[in-house]
């Protein structure tokens, strides 16, 4: 296959388009992952009434652990809670309240965490169900699991997911049209070739194949190039972010597309771009399949 400027620009357009789509997915995936990470760090606090005995507390913890989706339930004693509280307030609280006064103010609580496999919605439902069954327990004073925040995040998550899918489809369609347009220019440029092949009795199908083969090669090389470039860029950016020390848990959880996701993307790109190109090739070849006087 000989390269000319048209083929090279076709290749560049395909590569850039694919890179655009994949990087969009990458950002999307990690943003959703970020929401998920926040969600997973959110726990339920069950505040206890004053003056409970240890055996009563243990009974309650055992009861909670038996509930659906619960992965852990631990007692947060007053001293620890006090320290936490103090450290989060730091100098604002210094001198205002002493440690002892603080501990008196803070009730004892049980911190409950759920299994990590749950989605935002499932987690919300599991928390709500758990809250209902725990509420009736005599020791329980108050339950808090950031319900209003979860509701807000759920909305953001939903909007983001549907907007993401919509944007992905729009991008995919417009890109496959763009590529098809380039292919059409490329075919028009090969007008003479089509005339000659048809003149010496090549079947239409074998003429299509001439172009389909080129598009196939471009698509494959473009896919490889885009993935390699993006993976390199992703690794570099992640390493830079890690050394910056910002939002560590989130950055550590940043991940490239998984094998399944890559398979899905490659499949979608192939189907959309290739089918569109095939239709373009078919109509262009049929249009050019005649003898001109050039």
């Amino acid at each position: 296959m000989k390269l000319n400027s048209l083929k090279i620009s076709l290749f560049i357009i395909i590569t850039l388009s694919i890179t655009l789509i994949i990087s969009g997915l990458l950002v999307y995936k990690n943003f959703v992952g970020f929401l998920g990470a926040w969600n997973q760090s959110n726990k339920m606090n069950i505040y206890l009434k004053v003056d409970t005995t240890e055996s009563e507390r243990n009974k309650l913890i055992a009861f909670i652990k038996k509930q659906k989706s619960v992965s852990s339930a631990e007692l947060v004693d007053r001293n620890k809670a006090g320290l936490n509280f103090q450290s989060s307030l730091k100098e604002f609280s210094s001198g205002l309240v002493t440690m002892d006064e603080l501990i008196d103010l803070i009730p004892e609580s049980i911190e409950v965490d759920l299994e990590n496999s749950l989605s935002l919605q499932e987690r919300d439902q599991a928390f709500a169900a758990l809250a209902q069954s725990v509420q009736e327990q005599p020791l329980v004073e108050e339950i808090n699991y950031g319900a209003t925040w979860i509701k807000k995040f759920e909305k953001i998550d939903q909007v983001f997911r549907s907007a993401g899918i919509f944007a992905f489809l729009v991008l995919l369609v417009s890109i496959s049209y763009l590529v098809a347009l380039m292919v059409r220019i490329y075919i028009d440029d090969s007008k003479q070739e089509i005339e000659i092949y048809s003149l010496i009795g090549a079947t239409r199908w074998s003429i299509y194949q001439l172009f389909l083969k080129d598009v196939f090669i471009f698509l494959c090389v473009s896919l490889v190039v885009s993935f390699v470039v993006l993976f390199a860029a992703f690794t570099y950016i992640k390493s830079k972010l890690v050394t910056s020390g910002l939002a560590e848990t989130f950055i550590e959880n940043m991940s490239f597309l998984s094998f399944n996701e890559i398979t899905f993307v490659v499949f979608m790109l192939f189907v959309f771009i290739y089918v569109n190109c095939f239709l373009t090739i078919q109509s262009s070849v049929n249009r050019l399949n005649q003898i001109s006087n050039e």
Partner: peptide, 19 residues
Amino acid sequence: PFLRRKIGFVLQNYKLLKN
């Protein structure tokens, strides 16, 4: 196409593949 394979064409403007 199969009919054309049985005919040889020499056209006014040659129609050769440039590449």
